[in-house]
Design a binder for these strands. Structure first.
Lengths: 179, 179
DNA sequence: CATAACTCCGACTAATTACGTCGGAGTTTA
DNA sequence: TAAACTCCGACGTAATTAGTCGGAGTTATG
């Protein structure tokens, strides 16, 4: 399976919407999910993890939703990945070194001293990967998206979320919009 | 789970033994496994993949076993990982872009043009990781091991494999050495 | 003040994947 | 000729991921 799963992908896509409208009102997870055709329950779950990691801040109640907890320039893709899937290593060393049949019974000290050479190579590769992810911020990504999308689309997106927000709390406005 | 699993780890450890004794006779998978306390069946399976990828060459029959197919300087950790677990990406883009609720029915061309920004970041990180793995060869790793291990140990290792080889083919020499 | 919408949170299920095992077929040496 | 080896794909089990469900607390509307 892939090292980064759907959680990271969904989370990043959602956070980009927050980054693009951060001075406005809070955005609800249900709206984010519906706008992108994702499972609302699942997105909600992801946001609780993002909040625990201190990347977003929730406001409760009917007009509630989420904001970024700090500027988009200071949230990296690496932060998001670690928050959502827990900092997991590329490779986990099983210390095969110590299994050598020649040490039957007790293994000598040098067999488990320092880091296994293979493990060291993997750690280095992992560090490179993390450095690369840490170099990209939500602000950069959001900026990129702006340049690619037609202007009209951005406007329509803003309107849709606005309309959604205004519809909230009104009795029966949602009814049975369960997917 | 980890991106690189036990297959890569076992495979690299085994290949290091081949690299360190490459001018000698072939080494059998059963011996490699037993020496390191691994499952013999599993190691055998890994070597069929390594052979398909052209990294090792088998010689059949009673005194059979494996050699590296080319010099240890020209086999990288990346080669081994790809051979054993198949070149799998860090991340697989599900093209969330195209799900936007505003395109109900047919999505515009620009929604799926080029690479998704998030995907691009992931691809970059993956490239960095692969570059790093591609920079390390079996020869380097084997050289490192030599500097760390006591001289006596290398000698004993050679002897053990030698002894194992000579014991082969003799009626009943192995008997029920099944683990 | 009561209701409906929201966030918040952990337990639960289903599908996929990694790891390891097994049994059979062909090859070579004692 | 028989025993040991490599070779090869199918199978089983355990762990992880993706997604669902139900319940508790908070806030605005009628």
């Amino acid at each position: 399976m892939n090292h980064f799963g759907s959680a990271v992908e969904y989370g990043l896509h959602c956070l980009l919407y927050l980054a693009r409208q951060d001075q406005g009102p809070a955005i609800g997870t249900r709206d984010l999910a519906e706008f992108q055709g994702l499972s609302a329950d699942y997105v909600a779950k992801l946001f609780t993890r993002l909040e625990k990691a201190g990347l977003v801040r929730a406001t409760e109640g009917v007009r509630g939703g989420f904001h970024l907890a700090r500027e988009a320039e200071r949230i990296t893709v690496l932060d998001v990945a670690d928050a959502l899937e827990g900092r997991k290593p590329l490779f986990e060393c099983r210390e095969i070194r110590g299994n050598c049949i020649l040490f039957d019974d007790r293994k000598p000290r040098w067999a488990s001293q320092g880091v296994c050479g293979i493990h060291a190579v993997m750690l280095r590769a992992e560090a490179e990967m993390r450095r690369s992810l840490g170099d990209h911020t939500l602000a950069q990504l959001a900026g990129h998206v702006e340049t690619v999308l037609p202007q009209g689309h951005r406007k329509n997106t803003g309107k849709w979320f606005q309309g959604r927000l205004e519809g909230r709390g009104r009795r029966g406005a949602r009814g049975t919009t369960k997917t």
